[in-house]
Design a protein around this nucleic acid. Structure first.
Lengths: 216, 216
DNA sequence: CGATTGATTGAATCGTTTCAAGTACCGTGG
DNA sequence: CCACGGTACTTGAAACGATTCAATCAATCG
């Protein structure tokens, strides 16, 4: 049922994501590193661990019977994931970027901590609400926009969240196929949208993965 | 900015939805009744109240500049809503059914209660996670299915949640337009899907709002 | 009773998918 | 070093599905 898990690792200096969280929550974490497309958890796996992206990126997805893959969320550094009201996961999560670093928290210990520590409880509630709001935005995007608008919106969102300021440049950590699965359109349509956005001067491409955002 | 709120009411017998919630949470509630399409809260309103559907139904939606309306969730009896990580609401919520009964909770008092009462904190967390999971399902539906499958899925979902057993019958509390806005398709397409599903024997219609589900 | 709203159907149009083909890039082994 | 094979990306053309626009029907309300 379960893939081999990522490699357990220890760090000398704590990444910013972890120093920002409540100390008592941080104490519960252990770190794992994942390769590209390696599963962090899979469908039907028991929901006994929560996770947080420390570096890299991951995506929540569902594999349909006909082999199509639908992404329902992308997790970037700081995002907490893995909570559910069920006993078993309905979706799977896998690393998008190679070398993605994940903090793992035993669910029952986090929940016990949340019962007595209001700061942790609030942190969890905020993270869940933020996942909810990301999903609402994605729903809006995927149901109301044309393909070209979807891609444009996706790029701006990514740029906003990853703007660790390499000028206006953006190094996409994600393939055309991932973007397609995220937006619910075909990879070919994503390509055409990239081309059209460039022709309209909205973005500039220096190679397929290196993008410059010119204007809103 | 804010519509006239619903009518404040008092009840002799508590509805089941309210007797099921933690007593200390229930003590914070006051009840309001809303007419069809009346706003419970609107975009940009301050997020200082949480709500729960006691009876009837409500929908969360966003009005786009071109006048189109996109629903992102439907709330049925028992559902808690109104929480967000923001200061102001990004979406609005309005009653779908005429006479919808809503319990209102002052946000700061609920959050204070959650800090000291683990049962309430858990109830809130579960409700938020369930909203998240509804949204994930809706995202799957709206991005991967054909119009006919979307409508079929919507009807089955509604039937599941509202099966207070009138045989296999289902009295839709929602118009073709609402369904269209929920699924991100046009109302005409919803109509055609109803017709096709009936022709294929999946459902039977006794009038536009009265539906019988025949098989999965 | 006409007026309004919701539901329904048909026909032309438009956007996206699908299928097919071709290109650019990168690491590996001869 | 270059040829090879694989993967990601790109483009074109036909087919398909949903939208849009227009018209009609049914039910409800003042």
């Amino acid at each position: 049922m379960v893939d081999a898990l990522g490699t357990s690792i220890a760090l000398h200096r704590l990444p910013e994501v972890l120093t920002a969280e409540p100390a008592r929550l941080r104490a519960l974490a252990h770190l794992l590193r994942f390769r590209r497309e390696q599963d962090i958890y899979v469908q039907e796996e028991r929901t006994d661990t929560w996770y947080r992206v420390v570096s890299g990126s991951a995506c929540k997805y569902l594999m349909s019977t006909d082999g199509r893959r639908q992404l329902v969320d992308i997790y970037l550094p700081g995002d907490l994931f893995g909570f559910t009201a069920r006993l078993h996961h309905r979706f799977a999560v896998q690393a998008v970027t190679d070398g993605t670093l994940i903090a793992c928290y035993p669910r029952h210990r986090v929940e016990a901590l949340a019962e007595e520590d209001a700061e942790t409880a609030l942190e969890i509630r905020i993270q869940i609400v933020e996942a909810l709001e990301r999903l609402q935005e994605q729903l809006l995007v995927t149901t109301t926009m044309t393909a070209q608008e979807k891609v444009r919106e996706f790029l701006f969102y990514f740029h906003r969240r990853l703007s660790v300021a390499t000028g206006h440049g953006l190094a996409l950590p994600i393939s055309r196929y991932d973007i397609a699965d995220m937006l619910g359109i075909s990879a070919e349509t994503v390509c055409r949208a990239f081309r059209d956005l460039q022709e309209r001067g909205v973005i500039s491409l220096q190679g397929p993965r290196s993008i410059r955002i010119n204007r809103m």
